[in-house]
Amino acid sequence: MEPIAVISIFVLAVFVGFEVVSKVSSTLHTPLMSGANAIHGVILVGAIIVADHSSTNLELGFAVVAIVLATINMVGGFVVTDRMLEMFKGKKR
């Protein structure tokens, strides 16, 4: 990838990231953190790609551990966030 393209994407994403969460009430800090936490679980995609690349047992071993960890991060993160938010919904009836 062109370095300048990467830098552009990075800078724009930083601004979007700042912007979307700048006005959030403290009530939602915990679910928001948890949701953002789940999003970086997409490192799973990277883990799958390197598992495919792996040519030695060492590489494959590391990659498999990375897939396990990333899956826990992603799936667990979304499920626990949903559980928290489910309760918020309950009280609004």
Partner: peptide
């Protein structure tokens, strides 16, 4: 960047930026 994946760059940066703001808010 290393894996040549735009998605990982976007997702990671979003979390990095929003996480920094959230840390400050907290």
């Amino acid at each position: 960047y290393v894996l040549d994946s735009v998605l990982l760059i976007i997702a990671g940066t979003l979390v990095g930026a929003s996480g920094t703001i959230l840390t400050r808010l907290m």
